[in-house]
């Protein structure tokens, strides 16, 4: 156990945790937006996979990390569009559509992957990092925290943006109303369907971006089913964070560390089977649910389609 506090262990723990946390953070942030507007998005897993696959194809085919992220975002948006048409416009059951999107995302990315790459994934290059001058030279953790791919800073910026939108803009208020009392929003002359549509599209874009990050930066390749339940984890994170973006960031980091702790433990030459470690995040979530179930909060109109004049 004497290896636990060495620099290499801490570096691996924190940098690995950040790499694993970013996809969770983007996705959970997206889920916070649509949950706030009253749409529960069980299809996140599928949207992440679409984002991962198209992000990978974009980055590989166009030789640009940024075009890859863009393509991944578009992939997630495609999944969200299905959700918008069926669950928002037509008011169909959100969870059935969500399950369908997850299954479709899993199936279609696997099929396309086989059709285009014959099942062997070429690797991608290192995306390259941008150190923050000064901070990255701090001792011990400076390098591992403040020398990241540009998208990580972008993600933190986005977190702040969502926080600001929720807190002090009309958009944020509209989102809140769409999830709390859609009739009131409608009476105020704002289209509930439009607000929810934008919210779900934002979710899809963010989940796609998260998936793309997972494929391009996290794994540097695409393998079918690579998200391994992270979409569902993101839903739980959003629920536990009670729609507060800062908590989304913090809990994503905690779960990211859970997801990536095996590399760090190996460096500290502690051998625990990876199967045990893979259980950790889910066990942590169950523990959190058991302990804090009372404290979590969801909007009253969640999962209810809005129809003007319906009882």
């Amino acid at each position: 156990m004497n290896g636990l506090l060495t620099q290499s262990f801490l570096t691996a723990l924190v940098s690995g945790g950040i790499v694993a946390a970013i996809p969770l953070m983007f996705t959970a942030l997206g889920e916070s937006v649509s949950e706030r507007a009253g749409v529960l998005n069980i299809g996140l897993e599928g949207m992440m996979l679409l984002g991962a696959y198209f992000g990978f194809v974009g980055a590989y085919g166009l030789h640009s990390t940024w075009l890859g992220f863009l393509a991944g975002t578009a992939g997630g948006l495609a999944g969200a569009t299905v959700m918008v048409i069926l669950s928002v416009s037509m008011g169909l059951d959100q969870i059935v559509v969500g399950i369908a999107i997850t299954l479709a995302g899993e199936g279609i990315t696997s099929v396309l992957h086989q059709a285009q790459f014959q099942g062997t994934s070429p690797g991608l290059g290192n995306p390259g990092t941008v150190p923050i001058p000064g901070l990255s030279r701090l001792p011990v953790l400076g390098h591992s925290v403040f020398d990241q791919p540009l998208l990580v800073y972008f993600g933190v910026g986005f977190l702040a943006l969502v926080w600001w939108v929720f807190r002090s803009t009309t958009w944020g208020l509209n989102l809140l109303a769409a999830g709390q009392k859609p009739e009131a929003l409608d009476a105020a002359g704002v289209s509930v369907l439009a607000v929810r549509t934008y919210a779900v599209l934002t979710t899809g874009a963010l989940a796609g971006l998260g998936g793309a990050y997972l494929a391009i930066v996290g794994a540097a390749t695409f393998t079918p089913f690579m998200t391994q339940g992270q979409g569902f984890m993101a839903i739980v994170i959003a629920m536990l964070a009670r729609g507060k973006p800062l908590w989304v960031g913090v809990s994503s980091l905690v779960f990211g560390i859970c997801l990536s702790i095996d590399t760090a433990l190996q460096l500290a030459s502690i051998n625990i089977s990876t199967d045990v470690i893979n259980l950790l995040p889910f066990a942590a979530i169950m523990a959190a649910l058991v302990l804090f179930a009372r404290g979590s909060y969801l909007p009253p109109a969640l999962c209810l389609p809005y129809v003007r004049g319906a009882k």
């Binding site: 037509m90 059951d93 299954l103 199936g107 279609i108 099929v111």
Partner: peptide
């Protein structure tokens, strides 16, 4: 020469058409 995951797509399509 497709993965059997193609069946997942069919199942998802059934779900979607069912809701529609």
């Amino acid at each position: 020469n497709l993965p059997t995951d193609f069946l997942l797509v069919l199942v998802a399509l059934i779900l979607l058409f069912m809701t529609v």
